[in-house]
Amino acid sequence: MNFSRVIYNKFLSSWMRISITVIILIPFAIGIALLLKSLPIIRSDSIFNLVGSGKWAPSEGKFGFRPYILSSVYVTLFSFLFAAPVSFLSAIYLTQFARGRLIKLVYPVIDILAGIPSVIYGVWGVLVIVPFISGFVAPVFNTSSSGFTILAGGIVLAVMCIPYMLNMLLEVLKTVPTGLKEATLSLGATNWETTKHVVLRNCFSGVVSSFGLGITKAFGETLAVMMVVGNTVHISFNPLQSGYPLPALIANNYGEMLSIPLYDSALMFAALLLMTIILVINLFFRFLMYRAVNQ
């Protein structure tokens, strides 16, 4: 080998090695940085107290995250209730019933829906969902509501989650061997029976993990939810009340966090909490998913 080739090889291979190392170190860097920043508040109060207490008064030094965590969970639950059936049924239609032409049409639609920025979903939610809830849904239940509610957050989040879940469901359903499906059909089963008894049994864990990953997506979404959910704390389980999810708490208070002691630490703790919850769920379901897809 001549000299310049050796130099090139050395240079480019170290570039590749450094790049991959940097990327693999990113999650650890994020974790450590957020942990260091939230140490002051963890020292001042126990983690159980922080997560379990419901009192939020930064000026008195009281930081209780329970209402925000509950709010997040609640909004996520609602979005799951709407998104899961829609994406599940669509995935089945696209893999079992649909003709090639529809598939060619739907694929770009899913991609575009996944690519629309969350602020656009927020604008859509403010223009459509919020008036819909205050004008139609609330009167049906004989209450009045501003429309900026947990329910609105759930609906907007559901629309955002559908393309994400659907993409993964399609990938999972694709792994069912065609021969297996054809064998079932040739025994006289209908398409739906094939789906119910063969396809679902074959990739049950993959379907569950797609749902799980969809949940983490909803749990961490910030701007769109923040725009429609009202951002006030109510400890009640009425979906027509406003809520205040964890990401919205971080995003709304960054302006004043440097002026009150421990406030910035509390918000960084919130970010750490969010990341930990999401990463744990994510790693778990991704693992199931990998086993389902590469079995």
Binding site: P27, L213, G220, E221, P247, A251, L267, I278
Partner: peptide, 14 residues
């Protein structure tokens, strides 16, 4: 893939 799943607000805080 897990890194892709971390919400952008966490990246913002980081």
């Amino acid at each position: 893939d897990a890194l892709w799943g971390i919400p952008s607000i966490v990246y913002g805080a980081f």
